[in-house]
Amino acid sequence: MANESILLDPEFDTPGKSRGLIDVFKYRYLLTLLLKKGMSTRYYGSVLGWVWSYIRPAAQFLMYYIVVGIIMNGDRGVPLFPVYLFSGIVAVNLFSEILRNTTAAVVDNRALVQKIFLPRELFPVAAVGVALLHFLPQAILLLAVVLFLGWTISLAQIAAFVVGLIIIIVFALGLGLLFGAVNVAYRDARNFVDLILMFATWASPVLYSWTMVHDRAPSWLFHTYMLNPLTSAVQLFHDTFWQPLAPDVAHPDLLMTYVGVGVAISFITLVVGQLVFRKLEPAFAQRI
């Protein structure tokens, strides 16, 4: 009778059973500890520490501005090109850091995976949190620049920023869950992610205007390009920080349609990533 009452108890959970991303909210304390661990080890032993969060995007911006903007005349027809460039770099850097960190999250925490049970999704979600904390200095720097240039905030800009941020986080986390699970058994996954990140900057309007693709590419290729969730996210970041300073510049037709599709693709990617992650999760401790 005792065993029967335990089985019928709605509060009884099978040891080692996880409900996926839903359980992340149940283990908030562990998530906080993983965030602190990620922050403390990020620049462990570094002299400059957090300053690297400013140096890296600044060096990246300077390189692209000199090569693409000045030498290749990429700034032609794009007013306030430095603001346009940096707002795109900030968006792509967040996507890159989330995807890279989430792909490596399970393997980097192999000691915990092998010793105790906890929802394995905690590791990639904590990696997202660390990436967002390192995103803040870049966003603050961008905000300071546009405020100096006369930028004023509106509800439309806040909405564009939030939606762009959601697309980046959800899309990158979905891909990170997928490749992070595969990476446990096959380290080739990290190399494949590096290829994706190598193309990410060029496959979205960061270094050039979307009009160049519109004017030179076939119609089907332009629509495919615009359906890329990262393209929508970068364009929304431009709408937030750059477009108000250059109101006369042409705006993509059907942008809201592309954004809607981008949001849908991002959440579909998250669902697929979670399903693959849960399918491969039982073998993590043995294969890691």
Rank of each mutant, 00 (worst) to 15 (best):
A58K: 00
Y84C: 12
G88A: 01
T102W: 00
P79Q: 04
L133Q: 07
D75C: 11
Q60H: 12
L143S: 12
L48E: 09
I140R: 04
P79T: 08
V146P: 02
I70K: 03
S46L: 01
S46K: 00
V83E: 05
A59E: 15
W151G: 01
A156K: 05
H134A: 08
I70S: 02
S87H: 13
I66F: 02
I168R: 04
L136M: 14
L147R: 07
I169C: 06
V90D: 02
G74N: 01
L147S: 13
A131R: 11
L141K: 11
F171C: 09
F81W: 11
L175A: 15
V125D: 05
L142P: 00
Y84D: 07
F171W: 08
L142N: 03
R76F: 11
A159D: 08
Q157N: 09
R56H: 13
A126R: 00
G69M: 14
L99S: 07
Q157S: 09
M72D: 11
S53T: 06
R100P: 07
R110D: 13
L62Q: 09
I158H: 05
T102H: 00
Q138N: 15
G74V: 10
S96V: 10
L80S: 12
Q114I: 09
V163R: 06
M63N: 06
I89N: 02
Q114T: 10
L147A: 10
V113Y: 12
V68P: 02
R56I: 15
